[in-house]
Computed example of a mutant assay.
Amino acid sequence: MKNYYVLIMFCGALWTSAFAQEKKSTIAVLNFVNSGGVDQNEISILTDRFNNYLVNTDVYTVLEREKMDAILKAQDFTMTDNCNSAECAIQIGQLLGVELMVAGKVGQFGQVYTIDIRIIDVTTGKIIRTKSENYEGKKEGLLDMIEALAYTVSGKTAPANTTTKTLTDKNSSVSTRKTTNYVDEESTLTDGIPSWISKTGLYDRVIIGVGIGEGTSVQIGKSRAQIAGRKKIEETIQKMIKDLTSNFMEEVSAIGEEKITDVTTQQYFQEIIKGITKALLKQASVMDYWPPNGEMTGNRIKFYAKIVLKKESLADEFKKKVQSDIAEKRIKAVKANAEDALKALDKAIGQWEQSLDN
């Protein structure tokens, strides 16, 4: 009989150990936020698909979307479509009683779709994993991209017969490009700090301005960080416009009889820089803040802000302004006819873009 009880206790210990090993973290998925260019109904579909694929990874205990809505409704909490911050995720995660929350953004940047995923620890407020991808192709391919991201943030490989083939097959209608110069593949450093914090300047298709701000409140800290980030963007814009102006004047000088001096080039730069900069700063947008809840330094809260501007916007604004000035004959130093001047402009912009790629 004694041996019988020992056997029962031994089996019970094994069962308890196995149960502990199989215990998974509980997780819920917030409605993805539309960062521009994508229909809201499509955003909802992508959110639901990500939730389902997350279940398929078998890594987490995923809260069903219907159950999530029911819990929040029972507590008179209305979740808005723009709830994407860590603060909002933590608040909802506490109401749901889960350990982790997923926040995501989907948008369109010219011909490129962007998808950003973050997993947030509800207890600590830290972002424990992030993943960002760019996608070029038919919109339907976003469904495959979402599946790949669900597996990637779970630390697993997507099924080889579906997404993996779709994302790597050059003959597929789906093509992707890693944002290696915009967002690192893992998007965070080893200590959990986003890589963009050290990335002010031009990277691939965007200009990134990183600003630091402090204040006695979250709102003041974020506002000052945003202003500082826009200042960084402005500095980069002005340097690039100066380079473009020099390129243009050199090309015009090459086709004319009179050489255009550096003084003349600087004068034209001063004439156009204010208007172009103002127009471009209106197009720059805040993409992220770090840390999610700020960093306390004494009685002040510190934030980093990531401001982003498309590189193509800068070239477009410069071209639009110079084309107008050529047509109206406002560039006194340009003696060439309008057709030649416009060709010089296109060549100058092409050389500038090529120099950035090298």
Rank of each mutant, 00 (worst) to 15 (best):
M1K: 13
K2G: 11
Y4C: 09
V6R: 11
V6W: 09
C11N: 13
L14Q: 08
W15P: 07
A18Q: 14
A18I: 14
L30T: 06
Q40L: 11
L46F: 07
F50Y: 05
V55K: 15
N56P: 05
Y60I: 02
L63P: 01
L63D: 01
E64N: 10
D69R: 08
A70S: 12
D76L: 00
T78P: 04
I90R: 07
E99Q: 07
L100Y: 07
G104L: 02
K105Y: 12
Q108M: 15
F109Y: 14
Y113K: 04
R118L: 08
I119L: 08
I120K: 03
T124E: 03
T130N: 11
T130D: 09
L143P: 04
E147F: 04
T152Y: 14
T152P: 08
S154A: 06
K156R: 15
A158K: 05
T164C: 09
S173R: 12
V174Y: 13
T176G: 13
T179M: 08
T179I: 07
E186W: 10
S187L: 09
D191R: 07
G192F: 02
S195D: 11
I197E: 03
Y203P: 07
D204M: 10
R205F: 12
I207F: 06
I207N: 05
G215T: 02
G215A: 01
T216V: 15
I227N: 15
A228W: 03
K231P: 10
K231C: 09
I237P: 02
Q238E: 09
M240E: 15
K242L: 09
E250V: 14
A254P: 06
G256V: 11
I272G: 01
A279K: 10
L280H: 00
L280P: 03
S285R: 14
P291F: 05
E295S: 12
M296I: 14
N299G: 13
Y304D: 05
V308W: 07
D316P: 07
F318K: 04
K319R: 11
A327V: 09
L345N: 01
E353C: 08
E353V: 06
